[in-house]
Each structure stands twice: as C-alpha cells, then as structure tokens.
Design a protein around this nucleic acid. Structure first.
Length: 572
DNA sequence: GCCGTTTTCGGCCCGACTGTTTTCAGTCG
C-alpha cells in the first residue's frame, strides 16, 4: 500500500493526540500537529519527493527526526513511536478528545476514574449520571458532554463554501441590522474563501451598551447557545453549524480582523514578527509595552511589521510572508479580469437554456466569449450529442455568431475519455471545433497507473486541449480518483495542453495547491464553470477565488485573454 | 520536536468563556 501524505498527516495527528493525553510535552505535541499540516499541504506526495532527492527536513516544521519518521512510514507503513504510545494509552481516547468540551486532561481523567475508552462508554456513563461525581466534573459538565455527543453523532463536517454562504449571508444581514452595530464582517476560512468552511467567525464593532449579544443568540436559526459573554458568544444553528460572534472596539477592528481571519499558521508567523521586534500582537492591536501602535486596520498592522497588506486568500503560511518581504506577492486574478467562460452546457445536451440564451447571459456579464461544451455521445444520461448532432450544433453556432453582437460563441465539446484512452468523437468532427475539453465521467476505479495512462493516451490526440475536473472529486461526496497528476501536469505542459480549474463549488478541481504548482511550472490555467444554466455562470467567482488561493495572476489564467489570443494559445 | 542576523539551549501565541472551585484548570479558537 503506497503511503500518501494524508496517511502521514493522520499518523502524526493521532500520535499528537495520544502524547497529549498522556501529558507529554505540549510543544512536542504541537510539532507533530504542525508537521501534519505541512505534509498535508504539500503539492506532491512525500514519497515522490524523496524519490526525486528532496530533503524533507528543509520543510518548515520538519527537522531531522520527523523527516526520518516520514521516511520510515513510507518504507514500512508503520510508525514505531505511535505503536509504542498506543501500548500505553487506549486508542479510543484520541476520538474522545474530539468531542467538544473534552480535551486531553478530561479524557485521561475519565479513563482513570471510570475506565472509559470509547465514545459509547462515555455516553453510557454520562447518561447514567456517573460523570458528575468525578472531581473537577459536575452536573453541568455531564450535561454538556451529553449535548456534545449528540452533535458529535450528527457529524460536524465542514460545509462547502457555497452552502456556508447560504447560511452566512442572511445571518450577517441580521447582525448588521442590530441597533448599535457599526461594522460586521465574517472572518475565518470564509473570508479566506476556502473550499470548505468549518464554522463562521463574525466580527462586529458596536456602540457601547448595544445589546448585540442578546440579539445574536435570539437569531431564528439558533438551536443552542454554547457560550455567551460580553465580547464573545458561540451558538450552534439548527443546521449544526457553529457560529462565533466577537465584539471589539473600533480601534481594534483591524487587529481583530487579522486575528480572526487566520489562518492560524499565518497568524503565528506574523505574531512572531511582532515578538522579534519586542512587541505584542493580539486581537486588540499591536502593542509596544502597553501602548497600541496599530490596530484600527489590517493594513496598519502589516505596515508596522514591515509587510505589505497580504490578501486573505494567501494567508496560509505557504510562502506568502517571504513573498511579501521580498515584494513578490502575486497580483491576484480578479473576477473582472475574466473575459469569458470556457465550459458550459446548453439544451443540446443536459443544459437548461438555448445557445442564444446562454450567449445573451454571457454578454450581460460583460464577457467577450462563451465556450459551448456539450457532452459527447457516450454520456447518454446527460443527453450527449451524436456526431451528427454536434455537426448541427457547429452550424447553428456559426449562424448565431453572424447575428450576435458583442459576444462570440466558441465551438467546443466536453468529450469523454473512454477507458481505453480514446476520445468519444472522431478526429474528423473534433477538427471542426475551436477547442476540445476532455473529461473522465466513468471508470473511476482504475488503478493509478491505468487511470494516468488513460489520460495520457487521450492527450496524444492532437485535438485534446483541456482536461476537465482532473481528479473527479466532489467535495464532501466523492473522493478524487487515483491518478498521477504530477505526471499529467508535466506532460500537459510538454504537449501544450491545460488542466481546467472547474469553478463549480462542488468540484473546485484542480485545487488551490495544484494551481500554485501550475503557476510555478508556467502552465496556464483555464477556469470554467461547467454551467448547466444561466445561473451556473455565476459560480465563476468561486473559481476565481480558488485561483487566487493558488496564487494565480491574470496572466496565469487562460480565459483572461481575448478569444483570438486564447485560441492561439491552445493551438498545438 | 523545531528553531536560531540576540540564542545550538531555552524558548515555543494568547485571550475568552465555562464550570468547578474559592482562585483556577480545562478547553477552544
């Protein structure tokens, strides 16, 4: 079994949990967690990096020891230290610390006093009223554990960004209308536009004496008030989503916005910069002794620390601090830079609108072009076109282009890559198109080697321009299929092909780390919405956000170009 | 366990809230 980065990260996290439970050095624990995050964020599998001669101990947060442990894990699939610790600490305790309100100390205490090793045992003990009698616990804690177990079962998984928006925007409107509220903004991973959001952090400035907290916890959708204080409250919504609201003074707004936007890793590095200068940075401001020297705006905080403003999309401690220091921050691609959409469907296959309707909608968005890419013949469930059908569509697009003013339809197709690596249309018809998007829509279970070969063979066809949604993942629904994207990207670059950034919020495929990799290797990225309706065109903003998280500038994105230049760039 | 243009040893982010205690530990973000 090949060991992937996610396996390494999981082993390290598990080890960190168990070490923490047995009261190990907290910094050692943190080192394992940091390393887990570092490994998880790598664009390549560590195994491959080692093969290619990389020295993992040069990675941030990974020294000689952890680099050695990673190698052992890759070679043997085992982590001896983890097995050793598992001999001392019951495995189930790690899971118990993931129940909200129970940390390492309480988990250990529950084990010592009542022998609790599993979630099930914890529930039984709590329901039997046995926990309240343990020193340091009480009736309320016991009830909180029961409540938390209920949520634990319900699964507190991260929401896709768009789903989070549907919850967040009305709530933000509600908060903004509370008497005395001046500013209200959602910070956290939501502001960083991560593909999934775990909870919401709402930051508010308000007049003194405003009853913002009382009103907040009375929001219609609040299911449970977890905590409520003067400056911070936490609620759980009926959807199971956690929301924090924090109130700060206006002089602290920038510092608090910085602080609550994160990421944690980014914050720690910036905070360290403050410490190096003999200052202190917290959510109330940047302080020299007890004097606030910055805090009203984020720009001010960064400036004092000799840094330009770093866009939230980049705040992941993936090199943005160094880039900022050197004046090399990317000038991130904006929605306005996008000149057209390269991936959409119409009534000709499984879309809901006609060519003309889609064209008009694209024109209304200010686009110069719209690429029509209906499905190919094997996609019978999606109304895939026959070759004759495609030929007719080509004619209709030509006619329509004569009529249309200010928008140009590009003739494309989303062609299936068959399991044998052949394309689902003949070269003859493909040659009549402006460009071709190729995609895998079935046969997800091939081995990594076969899947990779399948795509590379397809890429041998000169009409292959863009690989759509390269990993096939559906966020929260379907894992990516096994495929060697490193190799595919290298080969694509060699052959003049591209990998799409599919902007659909369920896909966002390729992901941000891959976008950054593409940028680093000089491979331009086309962003397509895969729209099946006029509304679907709106999801371009999710793609652009993801592109920004991947450090892409307008020059790195294919569809920031005018149609003629675009088609020239795609010519093989 | 990591890290270093003050340090190769001695630091490692820090404040809010809760619940159980009487002054604070545990948890969280």
């Amino acid at each position: 079994m090949p060991v992937h980065n996610s396996d390494i990260a999981e082993a390290f996290r598990r080890l960190a949990d168990l070490l923490e439970i047995e009261g190990g050095n907290q910094y050692r624990v943190r080192a394992y967690r940091n390393a887990a995050a570092t490994v998880e964020g790598l664009p390549h599998d560590a195994a491959r990096m080692i093969e290619q001669g990389a020295d993992l101990s040069e990675l941030p947060g990974i020294g000689e020891d952890l680099a050695g442990k990673i190698e052992t894990l890759i070679e043997t699939g085992e982590l001896p230290l983890l097995e050793e610790v598992e001999g001392r600490v019951p495995e189930g305790l790690a899971e118990i610390t993931h129940v909200s309100g129970i940390g390492p100390k309480r988990a250990w205490k529950l084990y010592e006093e009542l022998g609790i090793e599993t979630i099930e045992a914890l529930r039984k003990a709590a329901e039997a009223g046995e926990i309240r009698d343990i020193e340091g616990f009480g009736e309320k804690t016991e009830q909180n554990i029961i409540d938390a177990l209920g949520r634990f079962e319900g699964g507190e998984k991260r929401l896709r960004l768009m789903d989070a928006e549907h919850i967040a925007e009305p709530l933000l409107d509600y908060v903004r209308e509370i008497d005395g509220v001046k500013q209200a903004i959602i910070a956290g991973s939501y502001r960083r536009q991560k593909e999934t959001v775990g909870d919401l952090d709402i930051l508010v400035t308000a007049k003194r004496g405003s009853d913002v907290m009382d009103r907040f916890v009375k929001y219609d959708e609040v299911d449970e008030v977890v905590s409520k204080g003067e400056t911070r409250s936490t609620v759980v919504l009926q959807s199971g989503f956690h929301v924090d609201l924090r109130v700060v003074a206006e002089v602290s707004y920038g510092a608090a916005l910085f602080y609550f936007t994160g990421s944690k890793a980014h914050n720690i590095v910036v905070r360290k910069r403050a410490i190096d200068r003999g200052w202190k940075l917290n959510e109330y401001g940047l302080f020299e002794d007890n004097e606030r020297i910055a805090g009203k705006t984020e720009e001010e905080v960064y400036e004092k620390l000799d840094l330009p403003f770093i866009p939230p999309l980049l705040r992941e401690n993936r090199g943005e601090i160094e880039a900022a220091e050197n004046g090399e921050l990317p000038d991130l691609v904006q929605l306005d830079d996008i000149r057209g959409d390269l991936h959409c469907h119409t009534k000709w296959s499984d879309g809901k609108f006609t060519l003309r309707e889609m064209a008009e909608a694209a024109k209304d968005k200010g686009y110069a072009f719209l690429g029509i890419t209906d499905h190919s013949k094997s996609q019978t469930v999606a109304g895939g076109l026959s070759e004759d059908g495609l030929a007719k569509q080509i004619d209709e697009i030509d006619e329509l282009n004569e009529e249309l003013d200010g928008i140009r339809l590009l003739k494309g197709s989303e062609v299936d890559i068959l399991e044998n690596g052949k394309l689902d249309f003949s070269d003859n018809i493909l040659a009549q198109l402006d460009y071709v998007i190729c995609a895998i829509h079935g046969g997800f279970n091939l081995s990594r080697e076969k899947q990779t070969e399948r795509v590379l063979r397809a890429m041998d066809n000169k009409h292959f321009n863009i690989l759509a949604h390269a990993t096939g993942r559906l966020i929260n629904e379907r894992a990516p299929y096994e495929i060697d994207l490193d190799r595919i990207m290298t080969e694509a670059e060699d052959r003049g092909c591209f990998l799409e950034l599919n902007a659909h919020p369920n896909r966002l495929d390729i992901d941000d780390a891959r976008c950054k990799m593409a940028r680093d290797m000089g491979l331009m990225v086309p962003i397509g919405t895969d729209a099946h309706s006029i509304n679907g065109l709106e999801t371009m903003r999710f793609g652009v956000a993801q592109a920004g998280r991947g450090w892409l500038e307008a020059k790195d994105v294919l569809n920031t170009r005018a149609p003629d230049e675009l088609l020239k760039l795609m010519r093989r």
